[in-house]
Nucleic acid binder design. Structure first.
Length: 152
DNA sequence: GCCAACGTTGGC
DNA sequence: GCCAACGTTGGC
């Protein structure tokens, strides 16, 4: 069992969009970074814990808990010429971008980035490291435990 | 809107 | 394989 933080811009897809989705689940499409892709393709397992994070918004931070709800499969948007995520170099026979489904566990109170930065228990979080921009980052078991407890 | 930091691209 | 130029992310 592993844990992850996954960023989404709420203007694009928010925690409420996830709550309103069929089965409260969504394919995590649009990731176009190899390291983030590799986390989904090679390391995520069904049931892994996910911190659902809003970025590029008024109050960036964790807005809820989710979980990985599928094994990896090709991101369809890479083949869709009308999608902003279209990748002309991707082929059906050789997909370049893989994703997993993410399912809502529960909305929580907001754990803002500002608050996260004040918590010594979270000082080593990958996503808080200077210069980190990755949309998917690993979360340690200790960090996960602390955050889920802290949000109760 | 700014800009620091980083990833990717492509010429050599 | 290097690395400058460029594009993107994301907090502020």
């Amino acid at each position: 069992m592993a844990y992850w933080l996954m960023k989404s811009e709420p203007d694009e897809f928010s925690i409420d969009d996830l709550a309103a989705a069929p089965k409260q689940s969504t394919p995590w499409f649009g990731v176009r970074n190899y390291m983030a892709r590799n986390y989904m393709r090679d390391h995520m397992r069904v049931g892994d814990g996910v911190l659902f994070y809003h970025s590029s918004c008024e109050v960036p931070g964790v807005y809820g808990l989710a979980e990985v709800s599928s094994t990896p499969y090709p991101d369809d948007s890479q083949f869709d010429k009308k999608s902003p995520y279209y990748d002309p170099k991707a082929k059906r026979e050789e997909p370049r971008w893989m994703l997993v489904d993410v399912k809502l566990v529960k909305k929580t109170r907001v754990l803002s980035l500002e608050e996260m930065r004040t918590l010594p228990q979270l000082a080593e979080m990958v996503t808080l490291k200077r210069g980190n921009r990755l949309s998917i980052t690993p979360v340690s078991a200790a960090e996960w435990k602390f955050i889920t407890k802290h949000l109760k």
